[in-house]
């Protein structure tokens, strides 16, 4: 681990100024995806600005929705009665991620900003465009089981590892960001980037931008929502494929639907084509399958992860079928 300074920020403005003023500085939240990277040599900040004790640890009711502080722990958010009642998809997604010990420490903002778990990104002896821009991609032509089938580029085929963010993408969450120029609000769909030719950038955030909260909108339909995750172990494993789904039925017809996919792309993948195919149509297994196929028409699997196309279709259909049955 390279030497660094440690600063405990007194308020969000001080934290932003401290990081913005130093190119090598980084925010420290729970540390579960930064301290490990510092030990591996994947990250080497020269200043850690600890934001884990800022007064951003509350879940507050808004007009029908919730405002989740950036420092709220994953375990606390999953257990919150209003999250469980209004957004079961989010509680389930949180509980399907990591282990109890990690959920007790990991923060809401830190979870959003997790780096990929691509093994080549974490192995400093191999080329990786995300870790060292321009060095090449070892996953292309390598081990691709956990890699993308949608939206990847010739420079990077990594996936975003978060479960929580997939649920938040389906819920149209809004991320509140404090930067050197003040506060702004970003729909979660605009937070993340596809890799393109700059895979070192996971998000549109600039150096010094601090996520202070996540707003969950008023969405009564989300009371009927689900998170379904397929993984190599029953627990403590990243998604091969996951889906967050909200289904609002009008009799046997789909009034509204929200679908986001995990484990298949560089970002939580909002399945807008599948949603469009379903809205106003029948809530049948056949329709669910056709909607999944509409989304997957753009899939470009790699040698070694072709199975993810059929798996994604199956997971989408199963999640929607369960929600539809629940609603009848």
């Amino acid at each position: 681990m390279t030497p660094f300074e440690y600063l405990r920020a007194g308020d969000p403005g001080e934290a932003v100024a401290a990081v913005a003023g130093r190119p090598g500085a980084a925010f420290l939240g729970g540390g579960t995806n930064l301290v490990d990277h510092m030990k591996l040599g994947v990250a080497g900040p020269d200043l850690l600005v600890d934001v884990s004790r800022l007064p951003l640890d509350r879940v507050e009711e808004t007009a029908g929705g919730l405002r989740v502080g950036a420092a709220v722990r994953n375990s606390d958010l999953a257990a919150h009665p209003l999250v469980r009642e209004r957004y079961p998809v989010l509680a389930r997604a949180l509980l399907s991620g990591a282990s109890g010990q990690l959920r007790n420490v990991a923060t809401t903002a830190g979870n959003l900003l997790q780096r990929t778990r691509c093994p080549y990104f974490q192995d400093v002896t191999t080329p990786c465009n995300k870790r060292v821009p321009g060095s090449g991609c070892s996953a292309i032509g390598g081990y691709t089981r956990y890699h993308a089938i949608l939206g990847a580029s010739e420079h990077c085929v990594a996936t975003h590892p978060s479960d929580m963010a997939v649920a938040m993408a389906a819920l149209d969450a809004v991320v509140v960001v404090l930067g050197p120029g003040g506060e702004r609000r970003l729909p979660i769909g605009e937070l993340y980037r596809l890799p393109g030719d700059a895979p070192q950038r996971d998000t549109v955030l600039e150096h010094g931008d601090l996520i202070t909260a996540v707003e969950l909108p008023h969405l009564p339909a989300a009371r009927r929502s689900a998170y379904r995750k397929v993984r190599d172990r029953a627990s403590f494993s990243f998604a091969l494929v996951s889906v967050a789904a909200v289904l609002d039925l009008d009799g046997d017809a789909v009034r509204d639907v929200r679908l986001a996919l995990g484990g298949v792309a560089h970002k939580p993948w909002r399945a807008a084509r599948a949603e469009e195919a379903l809205r106003g149509g029948p809530a049948t297994e056949d329709a669910f399958r056709r909607a999944a196929d509409a989304e997957l028409a753009g899939a470009r699997p790699l040698p070694g992860n072709e199975f993810k196309v059929a798996m994604t279709r199956g997971v989408v259909v199963a999640a929607l079928r369960d929600l539809a049955e629940e609603g009848r």
């Binding site: 729970g30 490990d36 850690l48 600890d50 007790n104 420490v105």
Partner: peptide, 27 residues
């Protein structure tokens, strides 16, 4: 493991179990 994966460093921090290998001393 020093990566938060094995749990052998688990302690209670303010009453909840955490991997102490991933808690920076200052925290």
């Amino acid at each position: 493991c020093e990566q938060g994966e094995c749990g052998s460093c688990t302690v209670l921090l303010d009453g909840v179990p955490v991997c102490s290998c991933l808690v920076a001393a200052g925290q």
